[in-house]
Design a binder for these strands. Structure first.
Length: 238
DNA sequence: GCGACAG
DNA sequence: ATCTTGTCGC
């Protein structure tokens, strides 16, 4: 994929906050991707004590959700994990991974927040602006705002509210299992985002794109991308 | 000042 | 995110 370099990630935490406040104005919080044929999931994994990050992008067909492409990258990071500044830690590696993606995903799911963020620019929104394509944030925990617990049945929802404004939706993707927190990333509305997350879920807490990305990220970290399953992708990158 | 705090 | 086995419950 062509990823137009919008800005540099080389900055201090204070500069990062200012950049977020500027970029938030470029986020489009409405719309609908239309017919979806390809949906991608993104995730990152780390080497325990070192500053090494493995970032992956997994593209699946939709609505059948069969894996059609998997890309991974290994990169060193300097930026520490700071709540609210996750993109500055994982962004560089993610951009590198996306540059190797050959498919053309209609929407991308991220492991983290979209606009349900202190400055309305979680990793899904930020990357959405960088990639200029529809994105959705699917987080396992809230960063800001509050939400009542959704009914226990799969499909139940409850709005994530902050200052009286709905910034996302707690979504029960599996009966009696903790909900995931969905928020608009870029170029999509909340209703469409929730519908896509549920349509991309196959009975696990996490929707397939994100779940597969998580599994793959751990696989390449533990095997150095040399496992049998990823041999083909590995050879293509070498 | 104190507590909270995506991955 | 990562370090880690079995175990209780649907």
């Amino acid at each position: 994929m062509k990823v137009p370099g919008i800005h540099s990630f080389d900055c201090t935490p204070a500069e990062a906050v200012r950049l977020q406040e500027r970029l938030r104005q470029r986020v489009v919080t409405g719309g609908d991707p239309g017919t979806i044929r390809r949906i991608a999931g993104v995730d990152a994994s780390y080497e325990k004590g070192e500053n090494v990050i493995y970032a992956v992008v997994v593209v699946l067909s939709f609505p059948d959700l069969a894996i059609v492409e998997r890309v991974w990258t290994r990169q060193e990071t300097d930026f520490p994990y700071i709540p609210g500044l996750l993109t500055f830690r994982e962004g560089p590696a993610l951009v590198e991974a996306f540059e190797d993606v050959e498919s053309d995903p209609d929407v991308v799911l991220f492991d983290g927040q979209g606009i349900a963020h202190p400055r309305a620019l979680g990793i899904a929104s930020h990357m959405g602006v960088i990639l200029d394509r529809p994105t959705i944030g699917v987080a396992k925990k809230l960063l800001t705002g509050t939400a009542a617990d959704p009914a226990e049945r799969r499909g139940a929802t409850s709005p994530i509210v902050r200052d009286g404004v709905t910034i996302g939706m707690a979504v029960r993707t599996k009966d009696r299992v903790r909900p995931v927190y969905v928020s608009v990333g870029h170029k999509i509305g909340l209703e469409a985002a929730v519908g896509i997350v549920l349509a991309a879920d196959r009975g696990y807490r996490l929707p397939e794109p994100t779940r597969q990305a998580h599994l793959y990220a751990n696989e390449v970290r533990r095997t150095g991308g040399r496992s049998r399953e990823s041999l083909q992708t590995t050879l293509m990158q070498e």
